[in-house]
Design a protein around this nucleic acid. Sequence first.
DNA 1: CGGATGGTTCGGTGGCCGCCGAACCGTTCG
DNA 2: CGAACGGTTCGGCGGCCACCGAACCATCCG
Lengths: 225, 225
Amino acid sequence: MERTFPEAAPSIAPVAAALADPSRAVMCTALMDGRAWTPGELATLCGIARSTATEHLHRLAEAGITVDVRQGKHRYVTLAGDQIAELLERLAAVSGHTLPTAPSLSASDRTRRFREGRTCYKHLAGRLGLHLTDALRSHGHLDEDWRLTGAGTAWAARHRLDLSEHRGKPCLDTTERRPHLAGPLGVSLCAALFAQRWISRIGDGRAVRLTPDGRGNLRDLLQLA
Amino acid sequence: MERTFPEAAPSIAPVAAALADPSRAVMCTALMDGRAWTPGELATLCGIARSTATEHLHRLAEAGITVDVRQGKHRYVTLAGDQIAELLERLAAVSGHTLPTAPSLSASDRTRRFREGRTCYKHLAGRLGLHLTDALRSHGHLDEDWRLTGAGTAWAARHRLDLSEHRGKPCLDTTERRPHLAGPLGVSLCAALFAQRWISRIGDGRAVRLTPDGRGNLRDLLQLA
DNA sequence: CGGATGGTTCGGTGGCCGCCGAACCGTTCG
DNA sequence: CGAACGGTTCGGCGGCCACCGAACCATCCG
């Protein structure tokens, strides 16, 4: 065949191709929780043979999308870095069928809605992440440029939340399709909430819930019923 | 075959697949200049038959990556929006082999280097875009958050540059691999420079050069020889 | 009108690649 | 040691799709 492209810079095609397969896409989506998965787990998740999963992981690693750590008889796979996570976010944003974005909630069912939370590459996402972001913003703890304000710093200190980072970035949520807090501040906040046990994981997935303790302490901020 | 994935959200695979083919990747890279291309031009660029190009464009349009306008016997294709352009930028950033970034230039050959400029989805890129960004920053016209400062506003007014937008965003250059000014401010600045005829296009491509007039007026800012 | 030009449609062909199962390797554990 | 288990390699199969050329349609122009 032999077609040569006009000195076509480092083409985007190889990386895109690595993400173009449904099985690999599911794997990457799973890896977005920032945790390490084994080939076997990913095979089960995708409903394919282990051997096939191995091949896919080979390809993802070659494209620089994943990295892995070997430990005993296990191999742990993770995304190669924030850069990759951001790429996947963009891709998801473009891929998503434009879902109608829920406008405003009645204060009553707000509590119930908060149960649906999850992590997205080490920061909070889902409704929990989204509404926490909104709440911080409306209380003046987060400014327009995704930075913690003076009031926000005071609030964190008052609650013994160790926020080493004050600068955040927006992240577009895959399902909610609205930006929520990410970046260093987002990661820092998520870690602090885990440390205080105000949130905890449900099972093995990305799902996260507010603990009773967290609910009590965040009641004012989130205006829960 | 019939594999069904675990209610796998709107998958990223279809969009990735649309970008996974070398020919389509070249097309998208070309479209990054923000201008309209015809199927014929793109076919020639990729070195494929017109019929094949038509098929590719079909697929890109289906994936929501391109949109087209019909006019007479021509069909003009463009990227579907900023969201797509940003996705492509990310993809290019991940794909790119990490080129060493030229550190500092001797003031003498700076002038020559400025010739290499181009547009990147309606803002300036290439060395010209990069150094213009650096110059604005070092003169205090652009702050850390990619916003025009007071000094920057004054500078623009002094030069009759109509900058309606003051908020910018970083954009990672495909070849230079360093962020340069994009976002509303970047687009606005690029338009203003064209309006003043301080920059102009070279031929049909994305290439842009500083005009003699532009060179004179920007001499101080850019510290040209 | 009739030729030229740009774009599209339609078979047909060849190669790539996702998939599997079987065999194999390495680690862990009884 | 031998069984169990996770992971990998390998051969083979089947479907998808990028590609082309030829025929066709539409617009523009002499």
